[in-house]
């Protein structure tokens, strides 16, 4: 073909494809469910399912060992965001007990072409990210709570995800039976 393929930057195309596909999913859910809370729940669940599988990919690519404390975990999460979404969240706002931290995003690839209409202002558009973190950490036996405290789509200056350590899951219990 005479056209140069180089005109399409593969990386960019792929992240746009992801963004748009995700947008299509969210708008489908808004059609499927009357209730915004239900949409939030479904997005979180989908993220969870992805996280559960993504962690295997992450571990096999990075040869990471087990994290001994939350600081290490936070670094790994940051690394994962860099690898998979090409964004580097800042880690900050550590709680005194170092069991809680924030991931701060200046840009969020999932919301690139997104504007929230006023009637869905309770939608947690990127809920999938929280689900993903939670699912992935659960597979390495860390139970965490994960939620948005700031969101650019709602007019905040940056997007902030708060991750809170709940407990270490025990080795003996097989997944799904606790």
């Amino acid at each position: 073909m005479a056209r140069q393929s180089s005109r399409l930057e593969s990386k960019k195309v792929n992240s746009e494809l992801l963004t748009l596909t995700y947008g299509a999913l969210v708008s489908q859910m808004l059609r499927d469910f009357e209730n915004l809370e239900e949409v939030n729940k479904q997005l979180e669940r989908i993220g969870y399912n992805m996280g559960v599988r993504l962690i295997e990919d992450f571990l096999s690519r990075t040869n990471s060992g087990r994290c001994l404390d939350m600081r290490e975990t936070a670094d790994k999460i940051q690394q994962a965001f860099k690898m998979y979404l090409n964004v580097q969240p800042t880690i900050s706002n550590w709680a005194a007990a170092t069991d809680e931290f924030s991931l701060i995003f200046d840009v969020n690839p999932l919301t690139e072409f997104v504007e929230l209409p006023a009637d869905v202002s309770n939608l947690r558009y990127c809920g999938i990210l929280c689900g993903c973190i939670r699912g992935a950490l659960e597979m390495v036996q860390l139970e965490v709570q994960c939620q948005f405290v700031q969101d650019q789509l709602k007019g905040d200056a940056s997007t902030e995800i708060r991750v809170k350590f709940i407990r270490r899951l025990q080795d003996a219990t097989p997944a799904g039976e606790d």
Binding site: S15, L17, N49, M83
Partner: peptide
């Protein structure tokens, strides 16, 4: 960058 991996996972969630 491994956006494709994420896209593949998202796709299989879409299917599900």
């Amino acid at each position: 960058m491994l956006v494709e991996t994420v896209f593949e996972l998202l796709h299989s969630e879409l299917v599900a």
